[in-house]
Design a protein around this nucleic acid. Structure first.
Lengths: 370, 370
DNA sequence: CTGAAAGCGCTAACAA
DNA sequence: TTGTTAGCGCTTTCAG
């Protein structure tokens, strides 16, 4: 598919315009074959590098392709190509409304949007708090003979080992959300968590003289080995330390599954520290404190959170939060899947290997059409 | 194309997964034909309501379709369907780097991305400052017999008249960027300019006690009848008046093509009013004041602009601007074209008629991957 | 009203 | 190493 543009100027009409024919116009594989003086089969072999073509004919064909600006009609390709591609997504199990549900949506939409070849998706889950469950889930994957695997990198050792297995089986893999740098992944899509933390800190403190901040964290299960939120938190904390060296950071811990306890913890803290007006939560669940915020309105208070979960957006809309730092979560998994599939199916390298997606600043005032 | 999902739980493995087959699996038109006891041609007629099919066979076919969950393979469709669609885009002529260039990019990319049917794009230009040129350009369009026309609404009367002509010729049309409410357009994509103005005002003034603001405007050619920027400016001004009733708004005019004059105007103004620290420009060319800003650094000054033109982004990156209120400009025209084409080609109504796209808040800190 | 059949551009298996 | 050919699933004449 390619576009040609011709520019015509009709000066006496004082009107000018551009016409472009988009889409597989012009040249077909047949045209190329004729120009190169070979058969369509040969052209096909050259285009996809299937080998078994002499250097000389390859040259001829290449030249013809260039001359005609040929590129295969993707519709005809995927019609003729009945190959099926199986992609396995290995992600944390999750409940409705949680972060990983959004990621999953992106995968599914991405798979649906692929038009070259028939794509199957197999989504496998593991327990984020349990490295063993990751190992169990990952072990079943090679037997499925997938064309590719997409996963996130929770448990460093276990993921590295799995990646090695995949490589041994010549199965390409991609990371989404986070990655392990020294592995041989095809591509990665995610945000820079450190920067996003710093951005949140900036939004919380800009144009203010900040003396104290409440940073609210989650009590993680003791089984929970990983701390996937650390880079973002560090970005946040480092920003504060650099820009407000005298600022006191109060860290409070709340339990994600105990709302009454959370309410009490917060009420108690803010009763003791009424001067603290800046509040942040660097994980994705700032909605957990929404109940406290709505029951204890304070027009001077500024709260900043992260990630566009449904519940966070609601909290933002109600005015309990000032800013949410995020990106369209499904977009990163959508792009990851479609790009990865393109690379795998067409056998090409990705345009870019490490893709950091843009961070959005969300405020009540620009929330409407998100 | 449709997706089926089956959920299997292997509890003893403490692993569960979801498989979904995306894309034209299962039933083909042949299967439907066989089940209904008719030919493929008949099925086709039913599916697309081309008429000339008896009620009875229609029933049979419908039932078979339902039973098999049939839906046409889009690849095969557009392969067999050699119809060409011509879309005409009618937009202001522009120079490199200007707003409308970005819009144009979106159209072109959108056309390229369409995979159903072959699409041709014909981009026509007119002079924004000259209603007559719009009339001239628009008059040539019906003769092209386009499948659809996309335009923006600059000159109310002239556009309305053209729209009527299109309707008379049964040519559907869509608006991008701005619209005229009471016309019969198929769909519209744009931002709410009033809201974006208010958002800019908010970002300029949040957490500040603002007493004076410099609002910089463009000297428009006297021929320039339209004031396309008015709604955004009103959003800005109204916000300020509501929230800072005592704030003084200084309006300065600069000429878009006279940089030295601009520099002088600004230097003179700020020499006389050194206390003014808040500056805004509600049109898309805040880069015009970049030279002044870089030559007269002031850490207390806050500048807010609009639209992600290359030059504005540069100015933001260099730290001369604090915030830019924008959206991916090409995205709105991309979406407008693809959605419009879908509606026209498939003969369906748009999902939504008026589409307001999300406004991004851009700051030096979230600019990297935009 | 309905069926048959010739492609759309490409792939892949088979023959040469 | 190369050419030939039978489809992929759908659309669209053209006969009947």
């Amino acid at each position: 598919m390619h576009a040609t543009a011709k520019l015509d100027k009709f000066s006496q009409l004082s009107t000018f315009f551009v016409t472009l024919d988009v889409i597989h116009n012009a040249a077909t594989i047949f045209d190329v074959a004729r120009l190169a003086g070979v058969s369509r089969g040969t052209v096909d072999r050259v285009v996809y590098g299937r080998g078994r073509v002499s250097q000389k004919t390859q040259e001829k064909v290449r030249k013809a392709i260039e001359q005609l600006g040929y590129s295969a009609n993707p519709n005809a390709s995927s019609l003729a190509n009945r190959k099926e591609y199986l992609f396995v997504c290995l992600i944390p199990e999750h409940k409705k409304g949680e972060y990983w549900e959004e990621i999953e949506k992106g995968f599914i939409e991405g798979a649906k949007s692929i038009l070259f070849g028939a794509v199957r998706l197999d989504i496998r889950y593991y327990d984020q708090t349990d490295a063993e469950s990751f190992v169990r889930a990952s072990r079943e994957i090679p037997a499925l003979h997938p064309s590719g695997v997409i996963l996130n990198a929770v448990f460093k050792d276990e993921v590295s080992e799995f990646a090695a297995t995949l490589s041994d089986n010549a199965i390409p893999y991609a990371f989404v959300d986070n990655k392990i740098d020294d592995l041989d992944y095809t591509l990665y899509y995610g945000v820079d968590p450190y920067k996003s933390g710093a951005l949140g800190a900036f939004l919380l403190t800009t144009r203010c003289q900040v003396r104290e901040i409440a940073l609210i964290r989650l009590i993680r299960d003791s089984r929970h080995k990983a701390d996937p939120n650390a880079p973002r938190r560090h970005g946040f904390v480092d920003y504060i330390e650099e820009n407000f060296p005298d600022c006191v950071l109060h860290t409070l811990f709340i339990h994600p599954d105990r709302p009454e306890e959370t309410l009490r913890t917060l009420e108690q803290f803010f009763a003791q520290h009424p001067q603290v007006k800046h509040v942040a939560m660097t994980n994705s669940r700032v909605w957990l404190i929404d109940e406290y915020l709505s029951k204890n309105p304070d027009s001077e208070r500024i709260v900043v959170g992260f990630d566009d979960l449904e519940k966070n957006l609601e909290s933002l809309k109600k005015g309990h939060l000032e800013y949410l730092v995020t990106r369209h979560i499904p977009q990163q998994s959508f792009k990851a899947l479609t790009e990865f599939a393109r690379c795998v199916i067409k056998g090409t390298a990705p345009q870019r290997r490490n893709n950091y997606v843009h961070m959005d600043i969300l405020h009540r005032r620009n929330l409407d059409d998100y």
